[in-house]
């Protein structure tokens, strides 16, 4: 079963990449409220149910995929 892991920098942490993208967009006349840049990781795990896949992905995400000091994450079953 495939699980997507969405990782974004925490709002308290200055997202320098997001800020750079935001400035480029603004300079080209594409106004927006904000832009944050993160990463997306797709996992394929053996699981009989969505709950089991979710638990496995949660364990993997918390083991190494995200750093709670600077990032937040969300899982989605694909």
């Amino acid at each position: 079963m495939k699980v997507g892991v969405k990782i974004l920098p925490r709002t308290e942490v200055l997202d320098s990449q997001g800020r750079a993208v935001e400035k480029t967009l603004e300079r080209s006349g594409r106004l927006l409220n904000s832009c944050r840049v993160g990463k997306y990781i797709q996992l394929d795990v053996d699981a009989a149910t969505k709950d089991e896949a979710f638990e496995k992905a949660k364990d993997i995400a918390e083991f190494v995929l995200y750093n709670p000091l600077i990032e937040s994450y969300e899982l989605e079953i694909l």
């Binding site: 942490v13 200055l14 320098s16 600077i70």
Partner: peptide, 16 residues
């Protein structure tokens, strides 16, 4: 820092 032996984290420089 990533192993937790030291506090904090290191992220991209402010000026990129």
């Amino acid at each position: 820092c990533e192993t937790g032996l030291l506090p904090g984290a290191l992220v991209r420089n402010e000026n990129l």
